[in-house]
Simulated scan of single mutants.
Amino acid sequence: MAGSSVVESTGSPAGPATRSASDDDALTLLQAVADPVRWAVVTVLTDGPLCVCDIKERVPVPGNLLSYHLKVLRTSGLVSASRRGRWVDYALADDARARLVAALPVPGAAAASGGSSSGGSSSRP
């Protein structure tokens, strides 16, 4: 039994040996929005570009924490920043929504790649 669990863990589709670069990109992107503060920032920015001071009013966290979360979102490419004198305006990247949708798993992809097929019998009429 112990031998079979070793085979299962190394043969897992989610294992590091079989994960593709696009899977890594998707995971990085989804991790960027998985934090409640970052999700709040993304939600606020759906209304349009905002100065960091306006974001701070709508997402009440300490300035240093907001700065960190904005950096994570910029690094992931979901948010862009532009300087306007002393002010920094933040906006969602033009392709942010499309990239987030593309990062989500496609229905049936797990079954096609050798995943569990236990859901197949429940889809019969």
Rank of each mutant, 00 (worst) to 15 (best):
M1Y: 09
M1D: 11
A2W: 03
G3C: 10
G3Y: 14
S4L: 13
S5L: 14
V7F: 12
S9F: 11
T10R: 15
G11R: 14
G11S: 13
P13R: 11
A14H: 05
G15Y: 12
G15L: 11
P16D: 08
T18K: 13
S20G: 02
S22C: 04
S22H: 09
D24M: 01
A26E: 05
L29E: 08
L29C: 09
L30E: 00
Q31H: 02
D35V: 07
P36R: 13
V37Y: 03
V37F: 02
R38H: 13
W39G: 06
A40T: 10
V42D: 03
T43W: 08
V44W: 05
P49I: 05
V52M: 13
C53D: 12
I55K: 03
I55Q: 02
K56S: 15
K56Q: 14
V59I: 01
L65G: 08
S67C: 13
K71Y: 07
K71A: 07
V72S: 13
R74I: 06
G77Y: 02
S80I: 13
S80H: 10
A81Y: 05
A81C: 04
A81G: 12
S82V: 15
S82D: 15
L92V: 14
D94Y: 04
A96W: 04
A98N: 01
R99M: 00
L100C: 11
A103L: 07
A103Q: 04
L104R: 06
L104A: 12
P105K: 06
P105G: 09
P107V: 04
G108W: 11
A109Y: 02
A109N: 02
A111E: 10
S113L: 09
S113G: 09
G114D: 10
S117F: 01
S118C: 00
S118E: 03
G119R: 09
G120A: 07
S121L: 06
S122I: 10
S122Y: 07
S122Q: 06
S123Y: 07
R124G: 12
P125E: 08
